[in-house]
Design a protein around this nucleic acid. Structure first.
Lengths: 189, 189, 189, 189
DNA sequence: GATGAATGAGGCTTCATTCAT
DNA sequence: TATGAATGAAGCCTCATTCAT
């Protein structure tokens, strides 16, 4: 009941979960497949995570942190546009580098089984929200809810990633177009 | 000569599936829960749908048809903007009237278990694609893939619905803002 | 509740049962497959036979009768050997002409679900028993149970048929050899 | 490191299967009845055998091995007759000692669901075939297929066992008579 | 009588989780 | 702590039989 021994094993399980969840879908993925993919015994998984649901939440937390960690040089003092563009670009970069991770993140959100505490707003979220607020206020768009625009950013980024992965030749076009959607809608006329 | 297969019962099963899928998630929903909710015996479900997967596809088909049917007065001769706006508004109307139906539609798409044939492009899809193409060509945006913009429309509509249902007071603002995102990105300044 | 109408339909069901039982094995064969093969509705089968088990017994009865009917010119006044040989040859003829029928007969016997009354000794059985008794007594083989020899005849005939159907070129050889097994064992020095 | 898979439990399941298969017939026997009879949980059966079909094949294999093992003092250097008689006697011994085992073996063969690999000819089979060939050649019975005679031996043994178990008082007589059938047919004048 | 939809009891199998080793 | 066998509750689906038409 003390802290589990090996941090490596924990990571291995989480990585395996990503793979297996991607291939089979979260609800179809047996914990046994995950432990096998991680190279540990079936029971071991449960010494690191009390239940499958716990594993899901742990993974959610980890993936979000990871994303946040990839934003190390966030331009805190740039303009709102600069900051949003920064997030947008990092999001797409990540989606190109490891699409499964974002897919799993989306899947996890879709299960509706995340703990309230797992849903704490992250650093990115807060920053995007702030930037959006700034713009919205600056323009006197009093009734445009910034929270809605955060949602929009995320969903646009997600489909952009999806589309780019399916049609890599369109990467540049979509990257620009997507951001234009967001920005001109926001700041637009 | 014998009891005819009842269209009512089929409908009852489909409606029950919508409810149960919404509450428990497609993969978590036992067929037994669906038949119970539909008020029929467990076996009966399988005289109307050969398998759970078949039911899923049948439901997908039905829901898409239903959406198409709600577009009866589509402004075939309106401008591209008019036509897109029409689709946008009907989409949101539907999302307001029956959010579960659209949720299930999205879930169904996410399972990755739909038959190829179920995925035939629908009337709406084709119309949105056409309108988008028109605009894109008209502006000389040669590398903006219309298919991408169709995806964008759908995902924007989906989050807009979600947000509106959570914050009904923002309906008007979001309805406009969402469409502005789409349109100014598309036709952008 | 009166006598079922169509003797044709009854026959059709029985013939269908033979086909389906042969292809799928008795216990694997759904009654629905039988009715389909017979060209009647699922329920109809049950107006001709109270249950699947009833059908099995009815079929058993029918097949045995049929075999008996094929022995019209039984040489009542021939020697024991002549009579046994006659039965042996007719048995093999039948096995060649319609192996499925005999296979099903064997399968039916193997289920252990035949009614006592269905097991009444048939004409053939009685005749073979008589012939065997004659020989046995004539030779003073006091402790050779004729009933055992009847069993032997049947099982030898069955494997002979099986073998001949798999190796048609050996028909003559096996037909003779098989009977020799039986006869020399019986009458043999 | 963990509880090792218990050979005892495997045996218990196989023995239970023999019992249940004998009582209910293979296709009628629920795996749940087998696990209950074996004193294990329903799921446990499937850690020892992947499926019911696997269990059937495992059982087939085991029973054949068992029979082979009972032939330890096979008279390799005896005459063909001696060797055949040896197999015949052991076969009957086994049928007397544990008739269910042979019944199940026959049932198993009849299902038509055995894997190709399970059907490898066994030691007994090969020996019987060899002995038969010797005799056949020695007598110039060029067209008597030895394979047919192997079938004959088996089927004669099976009915002999059946008869003996029903009429124990005839054991000696049938044992001799059965072998005489076989042998005089084979070598017979 | 004929039809085939309706029924619901099982059957086989999977899987999260526990527990002996 | 790590292992993987053991557990048993479901899950999906089949099928003999009944019953409304």
């Amino acid at each position: 009941m003390s802290r589990p021994r090996s941090e490596d094993k924990r990571k291995a399980i989480l990585e395996a979960a990503i793979r297996v969840f991607t291939e089979q879908g979260i609800t179809n993925a047996p914990t046994s497949a995950i432990s096998r993919a991680a190279g540990v015994a079936e029971g071991t998984l449960f010494t690191y995570f009390r239940s499958k649901n716990d594993l899901m939440n742990g993974l959610y937390f980890e993936l979000r942190q990871e994303f946040n960690r990839s934003l190390t040089d966030f331009p805190h003092h740039g303009s709102a546009r600069t900051r949003l563009r920064y997030v947008w670009d990092r999001y797409l970069d990540l989606g190109k580098a490891c699409p499964e991770r974002l897919k799993v993140l989306a899947q996890l959100r879709a299960t509706g089984k995340l703990f309230k505490e797992s849903e704490q707003p992250t650093f990115v979220f807060v920053e995007v929200l702030n930037a959006t607020r700034e713009v919205v206020r600056g323009r006197g768009l009093h009734d445009a809810p910034p929270e809605y625009l955060v949602l929009a950013l995320r969903s646009l980024a997600e489909i952009t990633i999806e589309f780019i992965n399916a049609h890599p030749e369109s990467e540049m076009a979509c990257r620009e177009l997507g951001f234009r959607l967001l920005w001109s809608g926001l700041a637009g006329k």
